[in-house]
Computed example of a mutant assay.
Amino acid sequence: MSASPATRTTARPAAAVRTGEPTGTDAAYAVQFSGLGRTFAPSPGSRRRTRAATTTSVEVARPVLRDVSISVQPGEVLAILGTSGCGKSTLLRIAGGLDSPSAGSVRIDGSPVTDFDTRCAVGFQEPRLLPWRTVADNVALGLPRGTAREAGRARVAELLELVGLSAFADHRPASISGGMAQRASLARALARNPGVLLLDEPFGALDALTRLKMQDLLLDVHAAAPTTVLLVTHDVDEALQLADRIILLGQEAAPSGGSRPPGATIVQEITVPGTRPRDRGSAELAELRGRLLAGLGIDRHGDPRGVATGTSIPHFPY
């Protein structure tokens, strides 16, 4: 089954569909990036010396992204990989209406993204919980404006159960672990019932074991409420475990005798085979890992084994 970028697909199981919410959605939305670019204006500190006798310095604009074009299907999990500073978080912010592109466009469900687009919810690397509020009250901050009190309490209780925090509803953030705080942050993002969930390194600050558990939790959450997910991560293994597709942002190689265009674009796109949860020890995933690490400039340190580079891999949805 395939869907066009402008198609909305119902993605919540019947038990999760709610009524009486003034702004949330019960659908996963398609996201379309078309020729998107972002250049940051010069700042007082971004000066470059010139050789002109009459000029000592000029302010320099900084191209970060250029010509990013990709369609994300409703309910798909897309991981965005790349080295630090390549524009991963900028792309995510533009998708959520928190920043504006300098060129091109982004559309959700076929219509342009608006400022602070309410069809999206964002999960950050830090939980960013309010210390004076309980876990339940922090989650309630994500509810759509105008949600009725009883409906809101029921939704918060549902989400706390989903992320395994029902017993800690009345705790303050200082009395729970970092992993629990991140679970609360994820529940708060889901409280908006978003058509698109934007996750910016959501598990980056956690220890390795807690991070693996949070990845499994995200899979469970997505199975229960399969919204469209855009996930920024530095972790290749995390991307392979969670995503349907992975894009690698970076600088394209300069043509022979030419100069390389400034700004990062999509230099590699991989469709991850199999259904989730995947075997973390799979030889097939190990070969894809090698390809992605090579794209990030990391040597493989060994002969490639497993899936040949030319292997045909099916595209999402399967």
Rank of each mutant, 00 (worst) to 15 (best):
A151Q: 06
H171P: 03
I176L: 12
L159A: 07
I176R: 05
R155Y: 10
A154H: 13
F168G: 05
E158H: 15
A169T: 02
E158W: 15
A148H: 02
E150Q: 01
R149F: 03
A151K: 09
E150D: 08
A167T: 13
S177C: 06
S166Y: 11
I176N: 07
R155V: 09
A167Q: 13
S175A: 11
F168H: 09
R153K: 11
L159G: 07
H171C: 10
A154R: 09
S166L: 15
E158C: 12
A154M: 12
S175H: 14
I176K: 02
R172A: 11
V156W: 10
A151I: 07
A157N: 08
E161C: 11
S175E: 12
V163R: 00
R172E: 10
A154N: 14
D170Q: 09
S175K: 14
V156Q: 13
L160F: 09
I176P: 09
L159V: 04
H171R: 05
G164N: 05
A151D: 02
L162F: 11
G152I: 00
A151V: 10
I176V: 15
G164H: 01
F168D: 13
F168E: 07
E161I: 09
A148I: 00
I176D: 01
S177G: 08
R149G: 02
P173V: 09
A174F: 06
A148F: 00
S177Y: 00
R153S: 14
L165Q: 01
G152Y: 00
A157M: 11
R149V: 06
I176Q: 12
G164A: 08
F168P: 08
E161V: 11
A157T: 12
D170E: 15
L160V: 08
G152S: 00
R172Q: 07
I176M: 08
S177R: 02
V156P: 08
P173S: 14
A169Y: 01
H171V: 01
E161Q: 15
D170T: 09
A148E: 00
A151N: 05
A174P: 00
P173L: 03
E158L: 15
V163P: 02
R155S: 10
S177T: 04
V156S: 15
E150I: 04
G152P: 01
A169C: 04
L160T: 08
V163C: 04
H171N: 06
L165A: 05
A151E: 07
A169E: 04
A169Q: 03
A174R: 02
S175C: 13
A167R: 09
A157Y: 12
E158I: 15
A148T: 01
L162H: 14
A157Q: 10
A151C: 08
H171G: 05
R149N: 01
P173M: 04
F168A: 13
R155F: 10
A154Y: 13
R149I: 02
G164T: 06
E150S: 07
L165C: 09
